[in-house]
Structure formats: structure tokens, C-alpha cells
Amino acid sequence: MIRLLRAMLIAVLAAFAAPLSADELRPAVIELTEREAGQWSLEWKIPVSANTRGASPLLAQPVVPASCTMEGDAVQRAAPLALLGSAKLACTGDLAEESFGLSELIGNADAIARVSPLSRPTQTFRLTAETPTATIAAKPDRWAVARDYFIIGAEHILFGWDHLLFVIALVLLVRSGWSVVKAATAFTVAHSITLVATTLGYAGLPSRPVEALIALSIVFLAVEVIRAIREPDHHTWTRRMPWLVAFAFGLLHGFGFAGALADIGLPQGEIASALVAFNVGVEAGQLLVIAALIAVLAVMKRMLPSAETPAIRVATYAIGITGSFWLFERLLG
């Protein structure tokens, strides 16, 4: 029975640590903006990831309010990993209580829909596969932006595999409660700094080297975890000061978060609340992962102590191999 449980735990950790793709969670975005009375511009961006390449993004088309008519044909073009589109609309009335969004969203994808009238505040909606359209409100919900960007931030850490694997490797390296808290806090502070600075235009790095360095950070931590298992008495500076390593790599991950947020965009007039909500959502998702992993390790240590080290070793090798693949893919791709 113990052997069976040990094998199951190792298999679960290995499977969890070895996703097939490092695709970032980059929601689709559709925006309806009033340029002058009754004249609106419609723009949309639908990402194409490894998980959706099997389904044509052409299936997802804009759903415009019933009181709007399209002037001419929509313009669509392909961009790297995305489909871009634009159109001009003529609309009557204030569009209140009318539907707006996309015809469908594939799988677990979500989207941000934004309506910007001339005479009223911008409204932002989070669309999902279950509800790919939203109803334009006569009076905007003041909490809608914060709520939606919080959810997107949490999803970004939970489904953005490269950030997630870094957090998992960090916990596997540190393990003890207080040290995990300090390392996680340092990572949070660091990625918050670069996320805010980049979003507000005070800093920035090209996305390709940033993504490669994020993959390198995963490989680096995986190597350190294996060294800690093989040489428990040899304390490297990484193991002595994991918070410093977490802070340094957290700065890089902040650029990655900023890249995802740039794809989504921030609503004019509510930039601060959206930015704070996104960052808090990232932190909430991160804390959820850390708490779950610490709980699993604690249960394993108490009930199956002999399985703890083999399970961590298998999971770490899976993490390191995955990070190495992403590193070469981002350097050579």
C-alpha cells in the first residue's frame, strides 16, 4: 500500500510539474470606442496559443450591440500568435442593456471587453467560455474593473506555467515555513516593482530575452533543489539567502507579468485600481499555490516520510527538463 501511494504521489507531482506548453494566459481583448456622436470604432485581438491552434480563431467573431451597424467590411490580419481585427460602426442610442462581446471563447480562455462612450465612464467586462458576451450597463459597476483584473491576475499565476513552476521550485528549495514566507515576500515585492514601473512607462525590457531569463530562473532553482538533495550539508549562498534569489528573479518575472498586462490593456480612468487588482490577484494565486504545496509536503512528511525525497527529486527533474526546453525554445525559436 505504501509503495502504491508513493508511486501515485510521484506521478502526480511529475505530471503537475511537466506541462506541455509555456503559453502565457493572455486573454482576448475587444474594445468598442465612441470617436464622435454615433460613430464607434471596434477593435479586437484574439490570441492563438498551442492549446487553441487546433481550432480556428476565425470562429470567434465580434458580437456588436443590436443598435449598431457595421460600415464596410471588417479588417482582419494575422499577427504573431494572435488575430487582429477592426471595424467602424454607426450606432444609435447609448447602447445600454445591449449585448457586446465575442461569439465564442475556446476552452478555458477568457477575454476583456471594454466599452468607452464619449459622455460616460468606460465599462470593462470579463468574458468567459460560458458567458462570451456582456450586457452594457446604463450605470457602470464601480467594482467591476477591480474584480475582473483580480481574477485575471490570479489566473495568470495559476495557469501561466513558467511563473507557476518557479514558485513551486522555490518552495521545494526552501520548504521551511518562515523561510518560504520571506522568499515569497521578496518575490512579490520584486515583481510588483517591475510590473508597476513597466506598466507606467518607467522601465521596460524586450519580451524575448525576458522570457528566456524566466525559463533560466526555473532551471537555476531546479539545479539548486537537486544539489540540496545530494549535498544536504553543503549550503550554497542560494540556500543561505533564498530571499535574495527570489527578489532578483522576481524582477524578471515582473517584466513578464507586465507583458501580459500590456496585451490586455488598462481602462482609462481606472488604471490604478486595475493595476493594483491585477497585482493582488497574482499574489493571491501565488499564496494559494504555496499553501497547497506546503500542505502536501507536510502530509507526505508525516504519513510517507520515505516518499518525500524521491517525489521531490522526480518533480524537480521534471521542472528542470521543462524549464530547459523552454529556455532553448526561447533562445532559438
Results as ranks from 00 to 15, higher is better:
T69N: 11
W161P: 08
L25C: 05
G265C: 10
L13W: 06
E211M: 09
W237A: 08
L251T: 06
T309L: 12
C68R: 00
L84H: 06
V145Y: 01
V181A: 13
V299K: 00
L84V: 10
R126M: 12
A22S: 13
G333T: 07
V48N: 02
R26S: 12
I319W: 01
L244E: 10
L105A: 12
V276L: 12
L244K: 00
G259M: 09
F249H: 01
L200G: 03
P242S: 04
L32C: 06
T236V: 05
E24L: 15
E130F: 00
I218N: 07
T131I: 07
L118G: 04
L266P: 02
Y149C: 06
N279P: 05
Q286L: 08
Q268Y: 02
A37F: 02
L297C: 08
A18R: 00
R142E: 15
V63Q: 11
V181T: 13
P232D: 11
G54H: 05
F249V: 05
H163A: 04
M70S: 09
L221H: 01
A78E: 14
L331D: 12
F325W: 10
S49P: 05
V63I: 15
F220H: 00
M241N: 06
L102F: 04
V189H: 02
A315R: 00
L42R: 03
L158F: 04
N279T: 11
V276T: 08
F249Y: 04
A90F: 08
R240F: 01
I46V: 13
G250Y: 06
L221Y: 03
T33C: 01
G101Q: 03
E36F: 07
I106F: 09
V189Q: 07
L32I: 10
W326I: 07
G160C: 08
S217T: 07
G153A: 07
L332N: 02
R208I: 12
G153K: 00
A113H: 07
K182Y: 09
G281N: 04
A17I: 03
L5F: 06
E71N: 11
S116Q: 13
G93T: 13
Y317L: 15
L304V: 08
H234K: 04
A50F: 11
A15M: 12
T316D: 09
K301I: 07
I46F: 02
K301G: 14
A260S: 10
P206K: 00
D110F: 03
I157W: 02
R240Q: 13
M1F: 11
H156S: 04
A28V: 10
R53M: 13
A203G: 06
V48Q: 06
A212G: 05
V64L: 14
A66I: 12
L13Q: 03
T188G: 06
I2D: 15
A7E: 15
A90L: 15
M241C: 05
W143I: 10
F187S: 01
V210W: 02
L251W: 03
Q123L: 09
P310A: 08
L200Y: 07
E211L: 10
P62T: 10
M8F: 11
S119Q: 14
E231P: 00
L59A: 11
V314M: 13
V289M: 11
A197N: 07
